Amino acid sequence: MVLLVIDTQKLITNTDLYHYDIFVSNVKKLIKTARETHTEIIYVRHDDGAGRALTRGTEGFEIYEEFKPCKNEKIFDKTVNSPFKETGLLEYLNEKQVGQMIVVGLQTEYCIDAAVKCGFEHGFEIIVPKESNSTFDNAYMSAEETYKYYNDFIWNKRYASCITVQETMERMCR
């Protein structure tokens, strides 16, 4: 089992997120529990490329301070929504014979959706802890509607087990 923390970068981890305080609290709990139970934590960062706000070398590219990785925790960088495309992550997970993955982070309808669906297609058992992914309002749906659409309708019991943070932490302790 690994905890995959996706795109929790300074530029987009802010109070405009749906249930920001709950999201931050839950991700912190999961990271803390993972460290206590020796569950590997893997971070993924998104790089939009030169000249963009979310780009390697900018302050916003770095991981949000409250989720900061320890020195021994791996970071994979990506340039598309999926954390598995040309990052080395898939090969790393397969080499370690990881079967189960907890997915948390940003943004629900973009990179979290890609991670859940692509991870499922690569044969991983996916766990999405409730209120541990988030997003912003968009032109089509509120952030709340987007969150519920993916977590309650699209992923749960199709691509992933969407369970409580407490249930997820209990699974890490097994």
Rank of each mutant, 00 (worst) to 15 (best):
Q9C: 01
K10I: 09
K10W: 00
K10M: 11
K10P: 01
K10A: 08
K10S: 10
K10R: 12
L11Q: 13
L11N: 12
L11A: 13
T13L: 03
T13M: 06
T13P: 04
N14E: 09
N14G: 14
T15F: 09
T15D: 13
D16N: 15
D16L: 11
L17N: 10
L17K: 08
Y18T: 08
H19Q: 14
D21L: 07
D21V: 12
D21M: 02
I22K: 13
I22V: 15
F23I: 05
V24G: 05
V24I: 12
S25M: 07
S25Q: 13
N26E: 00
V27Y: 03
K28P: 08
K28C: 00
K28S: 07
K28L: 00
K29P: 04
K29G: 02
K29H: 04
L30G: 06
L30V: 02
L30P: 05
I31W: 06
I31P: 07
K32F: 05
K32I: 09
T33L: 02
T33D: 01
T33P: 04
A34D: 06
A34G: 08
A34H: 03
R35A: 02
R35C: 02
E36N: 12
E36S: 14
E36G: 06
T37V: 12
T37I: 01
T37N: 12
T37W: 08
H38A: 12
H38T: 15
H38F: 11
H38C: 09
H38E: 14
T39D: 04
T39H: 01
T39S: 06
E40S: 05
E40C: 07
I41C: 05
I41E: 00
I41Q: 07
I42M: 03
I42E: 02
I42Y: 01
I42C: 01
I42G: 03
I42D: 04
Y43C: 00
V44I: 13
V44S: 07
V44F: 00
V44Q: 06
R45V: 14
R45Q: 14
H46F: 13
H46C: 10
D47W: 05
D48A: 14
D48Q: 13
D48I: 06
D48W: 09
A50D: 13
A50H: 14
A50I: 15
G51R: 00
R52L: 08
R52W: 11
R52K: 15
R52E: 15
R52A: 12
A53R: 11
L54E: 10
L54D: 02
L54T: 09
T55E: 13
T55H: 15
T55W: 11
T55D: 10
R56Y: 14
R56V: 15
G57L: 07
G57N: 10
T58M: 00
T58R: 09
T58L: 03
T58D: 04
T58S: 10
E59L: 11
E59Y: 14
F61A: 05
F61N: 00
F61V: 09
F61T: 01
I63R: 05
I63V: 15
Y64A: 12
Y64V: 03
E65C: 10
E65D: 15
E65M: 01
E66R: 01
E66M: 03
K68E: 07
K68H: 10
K68D: 11
C70W: 11
C70M: 13
K71P: 12
N72I: 03
N72G: 01
N72E: 14
E73P: 10
